[in-house]
Amino acid sequence: MNRLVIKNLKKKFNNTWALEGLNLQLNQGEIFVLLGPNGAGKTTTLKLIAGLLRPTEGEIVIEGTNLNDDPIKAKSYLGYVPDEPFIYNKLTGREFINFVAGIYNVSKQNYETRLTELMETFDIGTWVDELSESYSHGMKQRVIMCQLLLHNPNLVLIDEPLVGLDPKTSKTVRELFVRLKEEGKTLFISTHTLSFAREVATKIGIINRGELKFIGDIEELSRISGKKDIEDIYLKLSADNGIV
């Protein structure tokens, strides 16, 4: 069974098509990286899968469950990290993590030990007990990564995972993604960081103006575009008349 199946997914805002007929299948142990210029439809795609936007047409099936038919069950398989890591200003990082654990009904067995391990992984210090209104973008991002792994989703959706992270945490995140893939998790990542895509992706998609221009692995990309450097490939394929 596919972990994620997207069939003819379309989204229209007022009179503008933000996404036009996206089709995609992801299996377990895959890291799919979606590349594209600003306004191409990357965040829209992720929000549609996360259930934050309603599709105009098409369907999304997560672990065999149609998101439209049984959203609660479908969402129980996924974890989502938005591009802007908002946390309730008047909660501390720890309270936010515990709030998420309460909503996902995370098992209480060894909870504190797992939380401590994750906090160490993401270098979260005593500031986790201060109100999040004093956090930087990177601190919020680390708290959100921590809550994501605490409820252990099969399908991970991440919008711009490296923005605001320091080099050390960035490296930790990259290593973590590879480890998650090896554990059989599926990751759907939207990013502008091409080196990151080259390093972790098992499958790459290039989207522009709401249309998926390319889907395949890095070798296919090089072959189709005739370029070897991922930056050149990206610029060629994401251009208005890019090869499909």
């Binding site: 515990n98 309460g102 007990d129």
Partner: peptide, 25 residues
């Protein structure tokens, strides 16, 4: 702003019920 540590609060530990989690938040 907000540098005070808050080690004792309703959500210092996760709650067992979803309703209680939302309520405490």
């Amino acid at each position: 702003a907000s540098k005070r540590s808050r080690r004792k609060s309703l959500l210092f530990h996760p709650q067992r019920q979803v309703a209680r989690t939302i309520l405490f938040k």
